[in-house]
Design a protein around this nucleic acid. Structure first.
Lengths: 185, 185
DNA sequence: CACGGTCAGGACGGAACCGTCTCGTCCCGA
DNA sequence: TCGGGACGAGACGGTTCCGTCCTGACCGTG
């Protein structure tokens, strides 16, 4: 019986090390030391650092709350953007996500883990609100993907380029997003 | 007198290795072998692999052509997006840029080199067209930054998530971008 | 023709890291 | 009380990499 507390400590330490070092420089020795754990405890659970990391990613997938349902496309889009900003501003996500995106180009296993644990859940979460808007006739089906991109891509881009994202920015981005989306139908 | 042909060969090899391995795994030995050069030739030119890499980045900064000047905001934005897509689709840029963005979080020297050689020149290039649109009264000053983000962030986001970007996508993104921007004034 | 500098190639010490393995300790259930 | 398994700690061999150093060939200049 592997001690769940040990597994937990390792996973937390792995994510923390991932945030500090990135996947390429992630060192199993350091994860063990940080978790206050022997290396054997790690290799008893996972065959290599890749699988350990993949399990760690599940910890980053938590969506913050219920799907926005303000009754209007404008309100929902704005709420989705706010959630994206909050999520991308979380220190762990902020430090880990760009690295994972880059690493995914070279590591299919990691890419799939990122998609399954992070990208797809987040996308599905936001899509629920947009599907409702579509059902209300506020949004053309063709535009759903585009609007989804716009709720996160500009925020991610600005944050990774050390430029601020404030309420005013999100307000204007919202108007622009629903302006085009609504015009469709 | 250092042989410029040798310097050139090293730089090309460094960028190619950077694309394949990423900065964290970039190995000087491999750069030397790929360039058909001794390691001494590299360390005669740069004190470490960081400086070698920084010089290599200058090679990625080349903008493809003249600043778009179609006479309308719509046409210019569309042309800027197309240029962004072409640039981001270039195999070298495609493989290197996400890695550099991630690495910039941990390496200030690299971050500055990326900004100087890649981000700022590209931004300045596109801004010329948007400034002209502003002068024509087609675009509020406040919206310039937002429009600049929209010409590249969604494209980058989609490509790094293994989703296609076609003409139709850029067309709709253009309409949406100028829709909001023009409404300002 | 000798000298100074560059060249390709590669050996070298030192460091970091992976994954295996061995300790001796601790705890739990039979 | 005893055995089995997980535990922290870390030694170990093997690999990879950095940055230095050495070798012998080459080239232009004085």
């Amino acid at each position: 019986m592997l001690d769940p507390a040990v597994t937990e400590a390792i996973t937390i330490a792995a994510v923390a090390e991932l945030a500090e070092s990135g996947y390429a420089r992630l060192a199993v020795d350091r994860v063990a030391r940080r978790a206050g754990v022997g290396k054997s405890a790690i290799y008893r659970r996972w065959p290599s650092k890749l699988e350990m990391t993949v399990d760690g990613l599940a910890r980053l997938s938590i969506m913050t709350g219920p799907v926005p349902d303000t009754g209007s496309l404008r309100g929902d889009v704005r709420a989705i953007m706010q959630a994206a900003l909050d999520w991308l501003t979380d220190p762990r996500v902020r430090a880990v996500l760009p690295d994972l995106i880059a690493e995914s180009d070279r590591n299919p296993v990691l890419a799939e883990a990122v998609a399954r644990n992070i990208t797809r859940p987040r996308l599905a979460w936001a899509r629920v609100a947009l599907d409702r808007a579509h059902a209300r006739g506020e949004l053309a089906a063709d535009d759903i993907d585009l609007v989804l991109d716009l709720t996160i891509a500009p925020v991610f881009w600005r944050l990774t380029h050390a430029r601020p994202v404030d309420d005013r920015y999100l307000d204007r981005l919202t108007e622009l997003t629903i302006g085009g989306g609504a015009a469709g139908h």
